[in-house]
Amino acid sequence: MDDIFSVLVLTLDATLRVATPLILAAMAGLFSERSGIIDISLEGKMLGAAFISACTAAVTGSAWLALMAGIGVSVALALLHGLACITYRGNHVVSAVAINILVAGLTVVLGIAWFERGGTTPALPSEARFMPIEWPLAEIIGQLPVLGTLYKELLSGHNLLVYVALLLVPLSWWVIYRSRFGLRLRAVGENPQAVDTAGISVAFLRYRAVIICGVLCGIAGTYIAIAQNAGFTRDMTAGQGYIALAAMIFGKWRPAPALLACLMFGLLDALAIRMQGVPVPVIGEVPVPLIQALPYILTVILLAGFIGKAVAPKAIGEPYLKER
């Protein structure tokens, strides 16, 4: 019994670690898409941030500077996306694909040019990373059964960015549903003309949304490179940006359901690692690729309306142009 419980707690603990970048990126996508800007470049922004943060951490040895740099690059990419989609009314998907491909190439090119290690950055010492934070009295409280284990193993011992991600969910909810900015953000994704005639600049509003998206992706990428791992390796985001996108859609463009979707996808990932080669009763051995493909399959099924209905913001993907 104890054993199963501790396995469960450890799996959930792993889930939280895996889900953190998903949560950050899903919230990022949420701000962008709620404003009407399709963003399938979460992946590219995360990868760019991961690379630069790892580089900065390797050079300066400061995790905080690395975080700043990661956010900076991600915001720059977000602004590029904004420039293409908002100012030049380009196709959102094309722009995002461009960013993803550009970053995938550039991180390796620059990585090799700068560090000559075949695209990876030097391994980081723990001072240059975000390290787990022990909660007060974790060792003592951890002795208690059940609750103590939960406190010590699940709540305590994560790095700062994990807690940031978790706090961001209620914060995003509050901003979107309880602030003036959120009201305008939701409006501009549904009917930009209504926003324009109300005397609010559609472009400025959308730029702010993509900047927020950039900041959050920056944190997500930094987490992957210098908190979850100790350096950058090529293509290290490995499709997590797309899983986050799927989670956001799965959560129907709402923060709390998106969080649940991220945790579910994180859990699947944690299980995939844990179940490698382990036969499950009745089913037999579940192929790991299948579990890894499950988030995508589930999203396809959801989008097809077989489980509930995901309705995107009405004006999403449409460039805004004052009518003549």
């Binding site: 549903y177 602030s179 003036r180 009201l183 109300a198 609010i200």
Partner: peptide
Amino acid sequence: NVILGAESGGLL
């Protein structure tokens, strides 16, 4: 709809 763009502050 009525307050959109004519909000009286940052808090909704």
